[in-house]
Amino acid sequence: MNEKAITCKGLTKRFGDFVAVDNISFEVNTGEIFGFLGANGAGKTTAMRMLCGLSYPTSGEAAVAGYDVFTKQESIKKNIGYMSQKFSLYENLTVKENIRFYGGIYGLTNGELKEKGEGLINKLGLQGESKKMVGELPLGWKQKLAFSVAIIHQPKIVFLDEPTGGVDPVTRRQFWDLIYEAADSGITVFVTTHYMDEAEYCNRISIMVDGRIDALDTPASLKQRYRAETMDEVFYALARGAKRSAD
């Protein structure tokens, strides 16, 4: 498959005088794990919203899963999954009810729901908890469950906004196992994180500074280019120069 999962060219978003996203261009390959990094206020969230079909760009062009962000927002939404640290599941619905609800939204049939739901519960080892309210689960399980639900309809691309914030180190790695598995099954993963070690798990990463993408490459090449030992240093070298103060 040569088709690109995401392409964007000169993508820009202005709020009044403020240029939140300043003329960014990049491509994400199908099946790739793409790390989308940047300092607070660099414009990550704004860019991600445009790609998810939640807001229109001011100028530029972009296509997600082959669909134009200006004209085909509804098609984009059918073909992506989304999960963030803040958006999770309904706390007062049970594990099963959440799965059924989100599966239903994406148009899974009853048969599919049953099969996928059970598969998902077994994979996460939640057999004993399937009738528990999601609110009662530990954070790590919630996040894993939220991710699995976000890809229950086998989307072409899944957007993950700081999915592992505040999670313990073991669960964090289990979460990345799930990400790898999703990527192996052909889902393109677009992920933001504040953990620099997680940047290393991505195939390629981009680093946003003040609304622009200042660097985009594989972790290894970036480290080489900035003569750094770790991604932490690369990030520091780039983001230190950030001027933007608004969040």
Binding site: A39, N40, E162, G165, G166, H194, M196, Y236, A239, R240
Partner: peptide, 10 residues
């Protein structure tokens, strides 16, 4: 430092 980028954390 939760939710703060690597530079500010440092």
């Amino acid at each position: 430092t939760t939710g703060v980028d690597a530079v500010s954390r440092k």
